[in-house]
């Protein structure tokens, strides 16, 4: 009796997973560009921004239409309202990865990849986002909790790099622009981790109905 509604929810889920895939791809390509200093690859990420924004709009439209047509309650309401919240975090994740790519494309960072090693931070952040998407896909509370806990690891790596950059900047003021760009990359990665935590919290809400405030 609610086959149309079920079909619409299935479509919403597929679109959310596609959005998650876009985010993961964007992060992966950004990391590859950063590690290899590949300016061309970084440039190529430019068109991802509009794709991410478009997909976000499309998911928002599905959610708003479902709220209007189906007046959902209980699990359905939690699924739709949490999707509306999660898609914003997903879009921010993708856009911030694109911002990193823009910095790489500007070229300052490329000539100083030996100054800071982003390998560990970027891998951990990418891992966090993957876990958050998987927690959404599998409706997995334990995995969502793991993502939330993982934020401390990423925060520590961000702080370590920041301190290292400050130290280096004090010794070498000639390349301040490069250091500032690196600090921004550091911060963008940290913010991506925060958005992954938000997604994990909304996954938990969609299962339990409780909104957890993550400090």
């Amino acid at each position: 009796m609610r086959s149309m509604f079920d079909q619409q929810l299935k479509t919403l889920n597929e679109e959310m997973l596609y959005m998650g895939g876009l985010c993961e791809d964007t992060i992966q390509q950004t990391i590859e560009a950063l590690m290899s200093g590949d300016v061309k690859k970084a440039h190529a990420l430019n068109n991802m921004m509009s794709q991410l924004t478009q997909q976000e709009r499309s998911i928002e439209n599905i959610c708003l239409k479902l709220l209007m047509q189906q007046q959902p309650v209980a699990r359905d309401l939690r699924t739709i309202s949490s999707s509306l919240k999660m898609v914003t975090d997903m879009e921010r994740i993708g856009i911030q990865a694109c911002e990193i790519a823009e910095i790489i494309a500007a070229g300052n960072v490329v000539r100083a990849t030996d100054k800071v090693d982003f390998q560990e931070l970027s891998n951990e952040v990418s891992h966090m986002v993957q876990m958050a998407m998987m927690a959404y896909d599998k409706k997995d509370m334990n995995l969502a909790d793991e993502v939330i806990k993982y934020d401390d690891v990423v925060d520590k790596l961000f702080c370590d790099i920041r301190e290292d950059l400050i130290k280096q900047l004090k010794d070498d003021t000639n390349d301040a622009e490069c250091f500032i760009d690196m600090l921004m990359i550091d911060k963008y990665f940290e913010r991506i981790g925060d958005h992954a935590v938000n997604i994990a919290s909304w996954v938990k809400f969609s299962i339990t109905g409780e909104i957890q405030i993550v400090e």
Partner: peptide, 18 residues
């Protein structure tokens, strides 16, 4: 009840599953 029903039968009814 309409955000987090306790009983599965309530959930199924209010979400239109039967």
């Amino acid at each position: 009840m309409f955000s987090m029903p306790k009983d599965r039968r309530t959930e199924d009814y209010i979400t239109g599953r039967f």
